[in-house]
Design a protein around this nucleic acid. Structure first.
Length: 577
DNA sequence: GCCGTTTTCGGCCCGACTGTTTTCAGTCG
């Protein structure tokens, strides 16, 4: 997949143009093209072969030609020219909070600053402070920005950030005069990682609320504190620091503000364009005709006035939700789920017993639960050999008889071995109700081998679901190098489901792949891969990920009643024999 | 550089906060 590479080049062209004082609309159009290419699930090279580059939103004649240049020669003329005229280290300076294109230009032009090290030097010796437009305070801000960059947590997995965000939300709720607080931003959209935390509240005295916010015990630094907005730093849940923004709005603007601060930026720009076309203006205070507000209290009325059905937060990415005027499919929701199809027990590496997991699932309102411990090759995870597995199946069935109102499915997470074979024979797999096949070893194999292994597993009629298909761990391990077109085609052809792991470290499949798989005709199982009862509560993250992939309840087989699920499993086995 | 039910040119989203200002530019989201 060459897309990320090309997107990065276009992003750098945008940075470089900005640094040379290029036309800002031209800069924007490079950024837009970069983002579109990044979002594509299809390889740009394939589109180019079919002469369909201009079908990519934001790609016109010029950009299409530049993509062709890159595909043929590995470089783009304008990019090379810009690189030659601008010092290598300059674009990086744009990442420093407090430094934008104008200030970087001035630093370069007046003081010859061309790198982070140069920047630190001119701050230290006081020369930066003397530049026109600079001053003691702004240079202090830049120095703080540099320090933050070194301590920054970067993008953090949503599942790790949520407890922190919810804690801060609850703290703000206790402030005097605060009537409502919500988490907005990428956390509300269910993005797999977040860069900062956005909070929004209703209160009359904004200044007082912002002051209380900056004085919270968690706060390690204050970026800004005004009458309607505060911006602070707190310790990140995994490492470094993370920024938290609080906005205070009046009640009659809350819907508009929630819409605005939920984003995404690209989605908002599209909405504002719609407003402008109707002769109106949209901002965080409402939708206005002249000075007269025509919507703002409720988020939904903003969309409706603009001629759209209200768009679920997970779909607000400018990935087609505007074009279909908000007429998106009815997305799967947590309430639709009837069971968790992948949990472990103390039989392998789980921390809770079969009975404890079953009881916890029952309490969460599920009607079935698949116990899927590790197979024998996962030695580190205490995987089950054939003899232990057969006893384990009996244990699951016995536990199932003891619990009321919940069906226990005897399952396994069967390793797909390095040679492509499964960890058990078909005779053994046939004893089970539900079988997941996962790759846990030899993840560094080449693309063809990994793809072949995954497909071979899906072709076995006893395999119901491909577990955490990409194998990625957010921020820790990249996805395996797989041919997704082939994987999804095979899943659709064989009928094997694909897992959407709700585990916050995984979220695997990810949103854009889910959408691509739906288009290919695939089905899914959303599961937590819980290793203890409390991890069952990660399910909402998996549901949000599926929603971001535009999945409906019918696409997800653990929304089905048990009878339909069992029929589906039986039919698949029958067809495969 | 892109784009079109204001279409082949002339637009292109909007406001808060800060600092250096003397009325506003730069940055950020």
């Amino acid at each position: 997949m060459i897309n990320p590479e090309i997107a990065a080049v276009f992003d750098e062209i945008a940075d470089l143009l900005e640094l040379t004082g290029g036309d800002r609309f031209r800069v924007n159009s490079y950024r837009k093209a970069a983002r579109s290419i990044e979002d594509l699930t299809e390889d740009v090279a394939d589109l180019a072969n079919r002469g369909e580059l201009k079908k990519i939103p934001g790609v016109g004649k010029g950009t299409a030609e530049r993509i062709m240049q890159y595909l043929k020669t590995g470089r783009i003329h304008v990019h090379q020219e810009l690189l030659e005229s601008i010092p290598r280290g300059l674009p990086e300076l744009l990442t420093v909070p407090g430094l934008g294109p104008k200030k970087v230009q001035a630093l370069h032009r007046e003081l010859g600053v061309g790198s982070m090290a140069d920047l630190e030097a001119v701050i230290a010796d006081g020369r930066a402070e003397k530049l026109p437009g600079f001053g003691k305070k702004s240079v202090e801000k830049i120095a703080e920005g540099l320090a933050f960059l070194k301590r920054s947590a970067g993008r953090t997995p949503l599942g790790a950030v949520l407890p922190l965000a919810e804690g801060l939300r609850d703290a703000v709720r206790e402030f005097a005069g605060v009537r409502r607080v919500e988490i907005a931003g990428s956390a509300r959209r269910g993005c797999e990682t977040v860069g900062d935390i956005d909070l929004l509240c209703i209160a009359e005295d904004g200044e007082q609320v912002v002051k209380s916010f900056t004085e919270l015990p968690e706060v390690t630094g204050v970026r800004a504190a005004g009458e309607t907005k505060g911006s602070v730093l707190v310790a990140g849940p995994i490492r470094g620091e993370i920024q938290v923004d609080l906005r205070v709005v009046p009640e009659e603007s809350f819907g508009a503000a929630l819409q605005y601060f939920t984003g995404s930026k690209e989605h908002n720009v599209r909405l504002r364009e719609l407003a402008v076309k109707k002769g109106w203006k949209l901002n965080e205070y409402g939708l206005f005709e002249g000075d007269r507000p025509i919507a703002g209290r409720e988020e939904a009325e903003i969309y409706e006035k603009l001629g759209l059905r209200p768009v679920p937060p997970e779909l607000r990415e400018d990935r087609g939700e505007i074009e279909c005027r908000g007429e998106t499919p009815r997305l799967v929701s947590l309430a639709d789920l009837k069971g968790d199809m992948h949990v472990h027990s103390t039989a392998s590496d789980g921390r809770s017993t079969i009975e404890e997991m079953a009881e916890a699932a029952r309490q969460r309102g599920y009607s079935y639960l698949a116990i899927c411990d590790h197979s024998k090759s996962s030695v580190i995870a205490n995987g089950l050999d054939e003899a232990r597995l057969l006893r384990h199946i009996q244990d699951i069935r016995a536990a199932g008889k003891r619990i009321n109102g919940l069906t226990l499915l005897a399952g396994i997470e069967c390793d797909i071995l390095a040679n492509g074979k499964l960890d058990y024979s078909d005779d053994v797999l046939a004893q089970l109700d539900w079988v997941i096949a996962s790759i846990h070893s030899a993840q560094q194999q080449d693309r063809a081998s990994l793809t072949r292994r995954s497909i071979a597993a899906m072709e076995n009629p006893y395999i119901c679901c491909l577990g955490h298909p990409s194998g990625r761990l957010l921020g820790r391990r990249d996805a395996m190098n797989l041919d997704w077109d082939e994987i999804f085609a095979a899943a659709a052809r064989t009928g094997c489901a694909l897992e959407v792991s709700a585990s916050w470290q995984r979220l695997d499949l990810k949103d854009v792949h889910i959408r691509q798989a739906i288009d290919a005709g695939c089905r899914f199982a959303i599961s937590t891969d819980a290793h203890s009862t409390e991890q069952l509560d990660q399910m909402p993250l998996g549901v949000q990920t599926a929603r971001r992939g535009w999945a409906t309840a019918d696409d997800v087989l653990n929304t089905w009643p048990e009878s339909r699920l069992r029929e589906w499993i039986a039919a698949r086995r029958k067809a495969g024999r």
